[in-house]
């Protein structure tokens, strides 16, 4: 197993774990954490698999483009977490609940 594939698999495992946690946990804080785990996994896949040109055999030479992209992604993830936490805190202050309503979608 080459190193990129290893990192990609670890990243995918994180994504799957995050998705699982997002679905099973009702508490909103846990859902936000799950999304963060997922995004870490996606970033890992991105960085791990990055290489400059397809087919070349020197993949670990630093490719700046995905690094820049993941940096942007991290900023987005932080912003999303901040927004989510603000909304959750506000909802808890208003209603005392930290879960989603279940009376929708019918």
């Amino acid at each position: 197993m080459t190193q990129p594939v290893f990192w990609a698999l670890v990243g995918m495992a994180l994504v799957v774990m995050g998705l699982y946690a997002l679905i099973v946990h009702a508490h909103l804080l846990r859902k936000v954490l799950a999304l963060n785990v997922m995004s870490s996994g996606v970033f890992l896949v991105f960085i791990g698999l990055a290489r400059r040109a397809p087919g070349e055999d020197a993949p670990l030479a630093a490719d700046p483009v995905p690094q820049a992209m993941v940096l942007t992604g991290i900023v987005v993830a932080v912003a999303a977490t901040g927004l989510a936490l603000a909304l959750i805190v506000r909802q808890r202050a208003l209603t005392g609940r930290t879960t989603l309503n279940d009376d929708v979608g019918r």
Binding site: V15, L19, L22, L35, M38, S39, V42, V45, F46, L49, A50, R51, V65, P66, M69, G73, V76, A80, A84
Partner: peptide, 16 residues
Amino acid sequence: VLGSLSYLLGVALVYH
């Protein structure tokens, strides 16, 4: 966010 992450995962694989 879930949708975007799924999309971003795809972007990562496409870049690969």
